[in-house]
Simulated assay, not measured.
Amino acid sequence: MTSGLVLLGRLALIIGLLCLCIAPFAFSPARLVLLTQALTMLSLAMLWNLVAGYGNVMVIGQHAFVGIGAYAFYGFAMLAGWHMAVALPAAMTVTLVFGIVVYAMLYRLRTAYLAVGSWVVAETLMLVASRLPGFGGGSGASLPASLLRTLGARAPERLSTIYILVLVVTVLTFALIWMLMRSRIGLGLAALRDSEEGAAVAGVNTRLVRAACFILAAPIVGLVGVLVTLQKGRISPVASFSMLDWTIYVLFIVVIGGLGSLEGPIIGTLVFFLLRELLQDYGTLYLITLGAMSIVIVLFAPKGLWGLARRKLGRDLVPLTHDPRTGDLP
């Protein structure tokens, strides 16, 4: 029975991916926008889960890298006049450099000090962005129509192009995290997730694996920031460095779905957008429900909804290790 449920779960993941691949041809523009937003949040959730869930680096300043990616892309594409194909990897490189610098500043901090420190860095960068000449100051700046038309001559074409880009980034992010967790670094991260002291005693270089996942995540978060900019068609300090959109909601998704798992962010994203669609017309009730649900999960199911499901199934839908008894994937 358990094996059958696992196979059904894996089949559901495959069918879901196939549906996402045909979405530009099967869904209305409104549904495509919703899917684009969901995949964007899923990418950010998977990356924050890598840093906090596996790397045990509890930052609440991930929105800093979203904003850095957005502003770097605007600077290269608009102010420097670079082609989008060049400006995009350049923005990722800038975010990578900032990721190294930020980690060098914060790596000695732990628990609440790390969380507050990362938040302070993010808010400081937002204030700096609002003072940058050529970027529109506090009100931000819009991308010109000529740049957006490179994604498609008409709005539906641009929407489909952006959706495909977001889908590719999401799938590659998932695959990258899966491969990382299957590597030697992944074994160290899994041990670090279960017990930091135990991992250190077992010979895991905890400082190295923390740095690896934090620095690896930074440029990909910056890439997501570029895609967010293309979706919105503009940059601004408040929107590009939004703590609510790019960190708080992401934390909710991961906590609800399950910290330290590949399946958790997927489940959390589904729950988050389902609640948003059902409750968005009820004003503050939407946020109250999100907060109440987070508290209940933290108190009674600290490993999230996927933790409850895995307790019944006894294994993951996306295997990360080999079963030592059989040598097969669990």
Rank of each mutant, 00 (worst) to 15 (best):
A26N: 04
T173V: 14
L251M: 11
I248M: 15
P24C: 07
A12Q: 10
F272C: 00
G117K: 13
A191M: 09
G136C: 08
A141P: 02
Y74W: 05
A239W: 09
A190S: 06
Y54V: 02
S43Y: 12
L88E: 01
F65I: 01
G99C: 13
P324E: 13
V221F: 15
F76W: 04
A301E: 13
F135Y: 15
C19F: 10
G233N: 05
D316A: 08
A85T: 06
L329R: 08
M78T: 05
I164L: 15
T269D: 11
I15Q: 04
W246M: 02
A155E: 10
L8C: 10
S183C: 02
A70Y: 04
V296E: 07
A72G: 00
M46P: 05
N49C: 09
I267G: 07
L216F: 15
W48R: 12
D328M: 13
L114N: 15
E277V: 00
L279F: 14
A87C: 04
M293E: 01
I162C: 00
A212L: 08
V121G: 03
L11D: 11
V228G: 14
Y286T: 00
L313C: 06
N56S: 08
Q231F: 13
G138E: 02
Q62D: 09
Y282A: 10
A153T: 09
L34S: 01
V57N: 14
R149L: 12
D245N: 02
V201T: 13
T173M: 09
V238M: 07
I267E: 06
L96T: 05
P319A: 12
L106R: 10
M92K: 05
V224E: 11
M58A: 12
V33A: 09
P156I: 02
A64C: 11
D323R: 12
M78Y: 01
V271N: 03
A129K: 02
L259D: 02
G61Y: 02
L192H: 03
Y282N: 09
G9L: 03
G307M: 09
G186E: 07
G16K: 08
M105P: 03
E123A: 10
H63G: 00
R182L: 01
L125I: 11
